[in-house]
Design a protein around this nucleic acid. Structure first.
Lengths: 242, 242
DNA sequence: AAGGCTAATTGAATAGCATTCGGTATTTTC
DNA sequence: GAAAATACCGAATGCTATTCAATTAGCCTT
């Protein structure tokens, strides 16, 4: 009969709603003003909450930032997985192109967050985006790469983590170059070449060698020795004829 | 006769010495505690100077940091140029290896400064390491690359800035991976493979195509079979003659 | 070499901000 | 329905970069 049991869900839901409100407010303020420029008071105001209350949800400004960043990276991971799930191409290089396109564009659009992710790592060595979040994100590439190797599209002796560093490192640096030297409009145009170069790079450096490599030195030497044999026979015959 | 002209050099030199003292103190404190962790008071103390005095040399903490960073990058540029001047190899890939080795090692050893360089860019958009300083540093690569193209070691249609992004981007990202996952000792060992992979990458993707690729499998096999046919005819002839 | 002018130096005072904390309101429990 | 527990508040705290009024040192003129 105790229907009056005050639903404990209610409270939990309310707390979760409030936590989300804080996170949303924080994201906005951090994006607008950067980490140092962000005022806890403004975050509190936007979340319609007292300043002190934030601290019962998050230990410190840095940890709040961390939560925002982790949410951000989780979102990216989901999106990247979505891209991989919906891309038409079935071959490695086609899929790589899609991933590169997505990543480059994302990095350019969210450079603030990307920078902050690695900027945080410095002071508060205690507080930094957990490796797992980043690992989880780059795992999208890892799966693609391993599948490429299984299908024989990539060299079997290519080292996954080196390729990964090349992929993400180059794209991130390109993003910095692009946004440093160009306006938004031109930047969109310049993304194409960068992506294509990356695909071509993987094709030529990590791609499984096509027939060509079979014709390596060994083959040529084989031919050469046949030449020599033939030549000897010829000499022998010539001598006999004379 | 006015020998008593008190040398005006004296004063200027004294000021410069003091400026250097501040810069040195600041570098030390920033390295030890990071930007936010650094106390202006400690910098002043280490430079044997009043707190207020710093501000007649540098507008703000951020600008002081900036000066430290610029000094740092200028040093790197000089060192990189030194490496290029003293390396034995004359071919592009040998010299690239030397540069990659130097850069990777440097980035790992000075990750604090590298991070801070790009971290500063965020808040104080007013205060960031001038593009010219970075440009000046990467120009070492640019010169090497252009020379490689002139000498015909690199594809003529390779795009300089894309190659540059790949080079510095990959190495920087690798450095992060290495120092994130490994202790100092193992990290030193892991640098070799990364450098070699980078050189190999440039060879296969940006390197000028060698003659070999003309001889694909089909051609070689065709030649080979013709040889065998000829050889059989020869044997037949020889048998008939005997 | 004395005095005056300018520039450099100082550290106590200011102001801005993250974080804390004592008290109040709200929810849960019995 | 009241006691206990939990969440909330915002004024007070503490820590810093930065400013500024006062002081000192350097330099020039006479």
């Amino acid at each position: 009969m105790a229907i009056k049991t005050v639903n404990p869900e209610t409270q939990r839901i309310k707390l979760e709603r409030k936590e989300r409100a804080i996170l949303d407010a924080a994201r906005g303020v951090f994006v607008e003003h950067g980490f140092d420029g962000a005022r806890m008071s403004e975050i509190a105001r936007r979340a319609s909450i007292g300043e002190g209350t934030i601290y019962s949800y998050y230990e410190s400004k840095a940890e709040l930032m961390l939560a925002v960043l982790q949410q951000f990276w989780d979102g990216l991971t989901l999106e990247a997985e979505g891209v991989m799930a919906s891309v038409q191409a079935t071959d490695f290089f086609g899929r790589l192109r899609a991933l590169a396109q997505y990543h480059l564009n994302t990095v350019i659009l969210n450079s603030d967050f990307i920078n902050l992710t690695f900027a945080l790592r410095r002071n508060n060595s205690e507080v930094s985006v957990s490796r797992d979040h980043l690992r989880h994100y780059v795992a999208v590439f890892d799966r693609l790469f391993l599948r490429g190797q299984d299908r024989g599209e990539l060299r079997a002796d290519a080292i996954l983590w080196q390729a990964r560093d090349v992929f993400y490192g180059s794209l991130e640096y390109s993003a910095r170059s692009i946004e440093m030297t160009m306006d938004a409009e031109r930047s969109a145009r310049e993304q194409g070449p960068v992506v294509e170069d990356m695909v071509a790079l993987f094709r030529s450096h990590y791609g499984a060698v096509q027939g060509i490599e079979a014709s390596d030195n060994a083959t040529v030497e084989l031919l050469s020795s046949k030449f020599d044999q033939l030549s000897e026979k010829f000499d022998a015959l010539a001598k006999r004829l004379s």
